[in-house]
């Protein structure tokens, strides 16, 4: 349940920023399609607690985000919200597998076998032992996706996570994401620059 706030930027005609209030429900997939500069990343960052420069009130389960302590935020980011960052936020010096394990060891959510399986599905299993820094951006995106799936969550925030993948790879990754979300009965907020044409999206938000 996420009623949304007002941002201090040009948001005229936005379904999100101009709305009196907005409720995002757990278990439902949302897609946010908008050109650059409309605040896609801002929206996700506000929800994730990274950006606090907004007016209005954002709450999760009726609790105002601004009331969360740093301890609660790290708990939320380990168990309630997961983020596939547009900038990926991988550690270049660690291998792809280590980047994934960094999260999975913290949460102990998936077995090593399941991680390998996901990597195989996304076609990056040959690159797991390579340093993340030398992988292509598309490969890195898939590493970041798997990492984000290595934890429990009620909402998955995916910020243009298919931008450097071809149609086929995107669909496979999307399928994996949906599977994982359904397994957790979790919601999904997926942003994209252009129309995704992804299947089974019930709600589309215009920024």
């Amino acid at each position: 349940m996420i009623p949304l706030p007002m941002l201090e930027q040009d948001t005229s005609g936005s379904e999100v920023w101009e709305a009196e209030s907005l409720l995002l429900e757990q278990g439902k997939p949302y897609v946010v399609e908008a050109p650059s500069g409309r605040g896609k990343t801002s929206l996700l960052s506000v929800i994730y607690g990274i950006r606090t420069d907004y007016q209005g009130v954002v709450s999760i389960d009726d609790r105002d985000l601004s009331s969360f302590t740093s301890k609660e935020w790290s708990l939320i980011r380990k168990s309630k919200l997961s983020f596939i960052f547009q900038g990926l936020e991988l550690f270049d010096d660690l291998t792809a597998l280590e980047n994934i394990q960094l999260k999975n060891r913290m949460t102990a959510h998936h077995s090593d076998e399941r991680i390998m399986e996901m990597a195989r599905v996304l076609g990056i299993d040959p690159f797991l032992q390579r340093k993340a820094g030398i992988l292509s951006f598309g490969q890195q995106q898939r590493v970041a996706i798997i990492r984000a799936l290595c934890q429990p969550f009620n909402f998955l925030l995916a910020d243009e996570c298919f931008s450097h993948m071809d149609r086929e790879n995107s669909l496979t990754a999307y399928q994996l994401i949906r599977e994982e979300c359904e397994a957790r009965n979790a919601g999904l907020i997926l942003t994209s620059l252009n129309e995704t044409g992804l299947p089974n999206i019930d709600h589309s938000l215009r920024l």
Binding site: F83, M106, R147
Partner: peptide
Amino acid sequence: RLNKLGFHY
């Protein structure tokens, strides 16, 4: 980055 991934300070 670590903080974004859920690590407490």
